[in-house]
Simulated scan of single mutants.
Amino acid sequence: MKNMQKLVPGILLSLLLALTANQLQKIIPGHLISAGVFALLLGMVINPFISGNRNFSSGIQFTSKKILKFSIILMGLGLSFSQIFSVGKFSLVVMTFTLASAFLGGYLLGKVMGLPWKLSSLISAGTGICGGSAIAAIAPVIEAEDAHIAYGISATFLFDILMVILFPIMGRFFQMSDLGFGLWSGTAVNDTSSVVAAAYAFSDAAGQYAVIVKLTRTLSIVPVVLIFSYIHARVESRKTAGAGTVHARNKVDLKSIFPFFILFFLLMVGVKSTGLVPDAFSAQITSFSKLLMVMSLGAIGLKTNFSEVTKSGFKPMVHGFLISLLVVVVSFLVQLMMGQI
């Protein structure tokens, strides 16, 4: 009970931000800036005033992590497997090219810029897969330094802030379809929360498509972590071969890296696909899940100290920006070749 009481202030503050952001969205003609973007930015503005207040920290952390995942699970009640399959056949092709671009381009650019391979790999993983979640999952298996983790997360987050604002504008400029924009944002924007914010700013349909693509993309974190575990073991074994010592390979805990909330999302899709859920009820659940998403984005903003993020170093920022830009362009060009744009 006491733990629940600790969550209340942060959750209520996040809810207040969400309600305020929804009102601000209505003021902007054409909804060019979504409620999620407003909540994120408002949270970042408020952060310096509450960062030292422990009364809010637990609730903000809970909202940014748990409630975000719960909102995505609920979104499954507004989708069917036919929609997922229609998007999936295109997204796998686009993802193949974007992941290859992120890791190959990141490796080459890291070499040119003289960045440590661990730092370069973390930035590439954050860009290619799912932002901070991918970085947090890969960092332990390659024994990355804390500074590298901070640099990697900061580099991808700054680009995400920019893309959340610019993506809907560019999508309308190119007159993209809901499916095309959902594919583009789902494969090119880094963090799940940023994908949600950018895609729903374009349209609700694009937001649903983008979530499907993003969740599919998130699953790639499992094989990528296993690959990096192997690479790290090989690198360390070469270092210690001359010294006659054996480096113990870090074990990968699949339970800690597998995004299990995706399974619950698919369960909700299965329930909706049975046809037993009334459309009116699923529409209400979808609206509620969107409110929870805006709350989560506000909480992420409340956790983010923008001045600290910008101090992470020049080279990692440039590396992250260039790789993210490469992924954006590759995703767009692949869809253009597929006739989706």
Rank of each mutant, 00 (worst) to 15 (best):
N22H: 04
N22Y: 05
Q25P: 02
Q25S: 07
K26C: 05
K26R: 08
I27D: 06
I27C: 06
I28W: 13
P29D: 14
I33A: 07
I33W: 03
S34F: 14
A35F: 07
A35W: 06
V37K: 00
A39I: 09
L40F: 10
L42W: 07
V45D: 13
N47D: 03
N47V: 03
F49I: 09
F49R: 08
I50H: 03
I50Q: 04
I50S: 02
S51Q: 14
N53Q: 13
R54W: 04
N55A: 14
N55Q: 11
S57N: 12
S58M: 14
G59D: 10
G59K: 06
Q61N: 13
Q61K: 13
F62M: 10
T63V: 12
T63Y: 05
T63C: 12
K65E: 08
K65L: 13
I67D: 08
I67K: 08
K69W: 10
K69P: 00
K69G: 05
K69F: 13
S71I: 10
I72A: 09
I73S: 00
G76V: 06
L77R: 00
L77Y: 09
G78D: 07
L79G: 00
L79C: 01
L79T: 01
S80F: 10
S86M: 07
G88I: 09
K89P: 02
S91W: 02
S91P: 01
L92V: 10
V94Y: 03
V94N: 01
V94A: 04
F97I: 10
F97T: 02
